[in-house]
Simulated scan of single mutants.
Amino acid sequence: MKLVYVFDAYCGWSHGFSGALREVVSRHPGLAVEVVSGGLFTGPRRVPIREFGYVQDANAKIAELTGAEFGEAYERLVADGSFVMDSEAAARGVAAVRQVAPDRAVELAAALQHAFYVDGLSLSEAATYRTVAQAAGLDTDAVVAAFEAPEAQTAAHADFRRAAQLGVTGFPTLLAVEGHSVAPLAYGHATADEMDERLTAH
């Protein structure tokens, strides 16, 4: 059995979920986790952040429920309103860190969300991946090269297809997968204890 975590780096609920996910993963060190980008803001949904009028209310609720931090630099991006969240670029970045450090995918996915939601850094910029890689002690040049390589786009699209094949329509979603059996452990929000109970029952 393995866990499949379908998220989007530009999804506030995924940002809020990362702490509970890390807790579950730490309780089950032998369990493999596949991290998949869902593709929330692609195609016609790639528009300036001001078009999503609900962002600040949603973030307040996420912070209240999960304790997630939303930093001043990020709040400035929201206030300005012109920033465009591009989930394809973010998925390329997730693919890049996953390629360089596959066993740290959960930790690095959370680090990318921290870079955006706390530090206000764009997940479309190579410099952001250099910063995240450096903080994580990874080979910065390798991460940036992986982000900029054409294979990253292929991997991003493969992730979007994988999410669709799993029937995932919202983020974050955590699934327990064994053979052809797929059991949902979390959808949107769950505590580590709730996910543990479902995992044990599965």
Rank of each mutant, 00 (worst) to 15 (best):
P184R: 10
A73F: 00
N59T: 04
F147P: 06
I49Y: 15
Y129I: 04
V55W: 07
T128V: 15
V35S: 08
E197I: 09
A110I: 07
E23I: 05
R45K: 13
P44C: 01
L77T: 14
A63Y: 00
Y10W: 09
T173F: 03
E72V: 15
R198P: 11
M85G: 15
F17P: 01
A127N: 00
E69F: 09
D86W: 15
I49R: 05
G30N: 14
V168C: 06
S37D: 05
V143K: 03
R161V: 03
V4Y: 03
V24M: 14
P44I: 01
L174R: 01
F160G: 02
L138Y: 01
A109W: 08
A201R: 14
G43L: 06
V143S: 09
A96M: 15
W13G: 01
T154W: 07
G137T: 15
A32V: 13
Y74L: 07
W13F: 00
R130T: 00
E72S: 11
A63G: 04
V24P: 02
G170P: 06
S124G: 15
G71R: 12
F116E: 12
E197Q: 11
G30L: 02
A183N: 09
E151W: 14
T200Y: 06
A79I: 12
T42Y: 00
I62K: 00
L3G: 01
V132L: 10
S82A: 09
V25A: 06
D119Q: 14
R161L: 15
G93C: 04
V118M: 10
G137N: 10
Q134P: 07
E88D: 11
L185T: 05
A176W: 12
G120K: 05
V168L: 01
V36P: 00
A201F: 05
T173H: 01
Y54G: 09
Q56S: 15
A90G: 03
V55P: 12
R22P: 13
A190Q: 12
T128A: 04
L175N: 00
V132C: 04
L121F: 08
A96Y: 03
Y129V: 05
Q165T: 15
G170V: 13
A32L: 10
T66Y: 02
A176H: 08
A89F: 01
D119A: 10
S82M: 10
I49T: 04
P150M: 13
A190C: 04
A115E: 08
V47D: 02
Y129M: 12
Q134L: 03
S87V: 04
H202S: 09
A79D: 12
N59S: 01
L138D: 07
E194R: 08
P29A: 08
A192N: 06
E51N: 13
